[in-house]
């Protein structure tokens, strides 16, 4: 993340300075490689064997989903829970159940940004919070969620024409590339979804805005004004969360995408092409600004 920050400021994107293909690729790479250190600990009250198991440490990709990276955690913790009374594994941070169908980076930006690292998560096998979390019985469930979000994104960007022109095997390549951390394989298909010129120019930018304790905001947003002017992150926030712009709330908010605070003058198109998650959505987190910034 630190590296990315410096890279971010090196490339002067705010004034529309043009990047070369190589620079672009380097940014996509940095995003791809973003990771969060996590410490998993079994909930105290669910320890069955009398002895608290050792915590389990993992460096997990920001772009991934927890069910794709926690097999080892599951096996490690399972040995210590009541074999008669356990259900699906779920994770919690500081009383907040974590939705598996949000990318890990979104969960971290939303809940973990101001805590010490590693991010300390509690592992549960009991009392599944049905009201708050979706069930996830297998990796296929994650896959079908992922592909569905990709389709939704393309419906917004290209009226679904790109995704519909693809074959089943393209979807599989996209998923396999994502799942197996194969950057080139993933981008061999994703570049078509990210096509943004001529007839394939984005109609709308797929984005969601998250705030703790609120349902995400998703609206239609065109990347360019009728005059042809590129619209910026500031415009997007004004459209999607007008209440934030009316007051001085924005000053006291951090706007985080992929763990960084992009300048509000950044064109939304650029953000969509470079900082979207693999599901092709730009996931934006709004956080209260904490005083203790150094």
């Amino acid at each position: 993340m630190i590296n990315f920050r410096s890279l971010w400021f090196q490339v002067n994107i705010t004034r529309g300075g043009r990047l070369t293909m190589a620079d672009d690729r380097e940014i996509l790479r940095e995003i791809w490689e973003g990771k969060v250190p996590v410490c998993f600990q079994l909930a105290q009250e669910e320890v069955y064997t009398g002895e608290q198991p050792d915590p389990f440490f993992l460096l997990v990709p920001r772009l991934s989903y927890f069910p794709l990276v926690t097999d080892k955690v599951l096996r490690h913790m399972m040995k210590h829970v009541d074999p008669e009374h356990h259900g699906e594994m779920w994770l919690e941070f500081d009383g907040q159940p974590l939705k598996w169908h949000y990318p890990i980076g979104v969960l971290f930006d939303l809940y973990g940004m101001s805590t010490d690292l590693p991010w300390k998560l509690t592992v549960h096998f009991q009392n599944f919070p049905e009201e708050e979390l979706l069930r996830c019985s297998s990796k296929e469930v994650v896959q079908s969620h992922f592909i569905s979000v990709v389709k939704e994104a393309d419906a917004l960007k290209h009226r679904g024409q790109v995704i519909n022109s693809m074959q089943k095997k393209d979807h599989s390549t996209l998923w396999a590339g994502f799942m197996n951390d194969k950057f080139d394989q993933f981008w061999s298909v994703n570049k078509r979804l990210m096509e943004n010129s001529g007839e394939k120019a984005f109609m709308f930018v797929p984005f969601r805005i998250y705030r703790a304790d609120q349902i995400p905001v998703q609206k239609l947003f065109k990347p360019c004004a009728d005059s042809g002017e590129s619209l910026t992150l500031r415009h997007l926030l004004k459209t999607a969360v007008p209440e934030l712009m009316e007051t001085d709330a924005l000053i006291s908010s951090r706007v985080l995408i992929q763990g960084i605070e992009p300048p509000l003058d950044t064109p939304v198109c650029w953000l969509s092409e470079h900082l979207s998650y693999p599901d092709n959505f730009l996931h934006i987190c709004l956080m209260p600004r904490v005083e203790v910034e150094s």
């Binding site: 389709k151 679904g160 995704i163 709308f204 995400p216 998703q218």
Partner: peptide, 21 residues
């Protein structure tokens, strides 16, 4: 399904889907 194309996740609010689709 929305647009006969994708299945929004069960916790999506109807308002957002309506606004977009």
């Amino acid at each position: 399904y929305v647009n006969q194309a994708f299945a929004p996740s069960p916790d999506t609010d109807i308002g957002s889907i309506f606004d977009c689709f």
